[in-house]
Computed example of a mutant assay.
Amino acid sequence: MNAQKIQQKIDSLHYWDAWVLKLSCDHFADEVTLEYEDSDGNVTYKFSGCFRTLFEHSVGYEKEVPVKNLTRAQMPYFLHDVEVGEVESGSQKFYSCKITMPPMGLEIWCKDIEVKR
């Protein structure tokens, strides 16, 4: 699948302002999973074969309580923008995905992106 088709699938699931329920990074950053709430069932993005995983939390966001102690209703993460593209590094090609979910942003370069409800 190419980046444009992945982007179309992501956009068709109307992620804008969706409540992010889970973000995990596993297997030494080889896999990243993001799950958000949708009225028709939760949606999961699974990034695999990752080579670049940048998680940037706004320094201006006051973490008065550790995120692990927040209730679901207190979680501040909502999806704003998801942009899928393609990048080359040397002779390798990757999908690139930039996700804005204030107060956090992500940039991931990976070999595969799976989107499922």
Rank of each mutant, 00 (worst) to 15 (best):
F94L: 06
Q74F: 02
W16R: 13
V87R: 08
G41M: 03
A73P: 01
G105S: 10
G90H: 09
R52Y: 05
T71P: 00
H80N: 09
D40Y: 00
H27G: 07
Y77D: 08
E31S: 14
V43A: 02
L70T: 07
S89R: 07
T100P: 01
L106F: 06
V65Q: 12
D17Y: 02
K93C: 09
W16H: 13
C25S: 15
V67H: 09
S48K: 03
S24Q: 13
D40E: 15
G49S: 07
Y36K: 10
K22N: 12
Y45G: 09
Y95P: 04
E56F: 10
E64R: 14
L106E: 04
K63M: 15
D81I: 06
V87E: 03
V43S: 00
L79N: 05
F28T: 12
C25Y: 12
H57I: 05
S89W: 01
K98S: 10
P66I: 03
F94M: 11
V59R: 15
K22S: 12
G90A: 08
E86L: 10
S48H: 06
H80K: 14
V20Y: 03
V43R: 01
E37C: 04
G85V: 02
A73T: 09
G41L: 01
V67T: 11
T71L: 08
L79I: 06
S91T: 14
F28P: 05
E35P: 02
T53M: 00
L79H: 05
A18C: 15
P66N: 08
V65N: 06
L34T: 00
G90W: 11
T53G: 06
G85L: 01
S91M: 14
K46G: 02
H57C: 07
P102Q: 13
G105E: 14
V65P: 05
V32E: 02
K46D: 03
D81R: 05
G49K: 07
P76F: 00
L106N: 08
W16N: 02
T53C: 09
Y77K: 02
A29Q: 09
W16E: 09
Q92V: 08
H27S: 15
M75V: 03
V67A: 13
G85E: 03
G60A: 15
T33K: 11
F55T: 13
V20L: 12
K46L: 07
G90M: 11
P76S: 07
G85F: 00
V32I: 15
G41T: 03
D38Y: 01
N69Y: 08
N69R: 06
M101P: 02
F47A: 04
S96K: 05
W19P: 00
V87I: 05
F94E: 04
K63P: 03
K93I: 11
E83S: 01
F47D: 03
L79W: 03
Y45H: 10
V84D: 03
G41N: 04
V87M: 01
H27D: 13
D26H: 09
K93A: 09
D40I: 00
